[in-house]
């Protein structure tokens, strides 16, 4: 789900960079992380980093990967998750070319911001009904909503930036292609992400009860 360089027009990534920088500034002001929780946060960020590296090939030539964003968002809070996942995405973009540098603001807004906040609020909406279902839903929505955002951003590129003859200058496929090819695989992957989020959050809250109750 990491968009590479050359797919996104400047008309898209420049405003996204401004919004992303603003959100990081808000996060920096809001986050007051307890020093004792930093090792746990670094460990969970590392898990998210590795989960994003493991690629699952699907029939039809597409691939997907888990993210672990919901785990960080639920065990800490969405602003901390936003900052830590933004850091993970930055390392992936700068060191390994997993996601482009110009596309970084879009990847940050979709995965780090939408993924973290959708997981957090998704959990809090459904936790009164069932905590188990709320955890599964949080994992599912943390994958599906970013995939919908990325499919939309990619799919509107031919409309936003095209040559005089109408040929697209950046990503060439429209919404009729991007929405089904990106969102449908992630609807299924979300189920796996939900199970992983449920297992990880449940285990870590039990095992490190003291750390998360503090």
């Amino acid at each position: 789900m990491h968009i590479p360089d050359g797919f996104i027009s400047p008309q898209t990534y420049l405003p996204a960079a401004v919004v992303g920088a603003g959100l990081l500034a808000v996060a920096y002001k809001k986050v007051d992380l307890d020093i004792e929780k930093i090792p746990m946060l670094s460990g969970l960020s590392a898990i998210a980093f590795v989960m994003m590296l493991i690629i699952i090939p699907l029939p039809g030539g597409t691939t997907v990967h888990l993210s672990g964003i919901a785990i960080v968002a639920l065990l800490f809070n969405p602003w901390i998750a936003f900052m830590s996942i933004s850091l993970v995405l930055l390392i992936q973009a700068l060191m390994f070319g997993d996601g482009g540098v110009t596309a970084y603001p879009i990847n940050m807004l979709s995965l780090a911001f939408l993924g973290s906040f959708s997981a957090y609020y998704g959990y809090h909406i459904f936790k009164q009904v069932s905590k188990k279902f709320a955890l599964l839903f949080a994992g599912w929505i943390s994958i599906v909503l970013p995939s919908l955002f990325i499919a939309t951003v990619l799919g509107v590129q031919p409309i936003i930036a095209s040559a005089d003859d109408g040929s697209p200058l950046f990503f060439p496929f429209g919404l009729n292609v991007t929405l089904p090819s990106i969102v449908i695989p992630h609807l299924l992957l979300g189920l796996l992400e939900g199970v992983v989020a449920y297992g990880a959050v449940h285990f870590l809250r039990l095992r490190f009860k003291k750390a998360f109750d503090a």
Binding site: M1, P4, F7, T62, I150, F171, V177, T178, S181, P185
Partner: peptide, 11 residues
């Protein structure tokens, strides 16, 4: 430049 419909690719 390489593009797949699901947003993967590279230059």
């Amino acid at each position: 430049k390489l593009f797949s419909e699901d947003g993967h690719g590279k230059s």
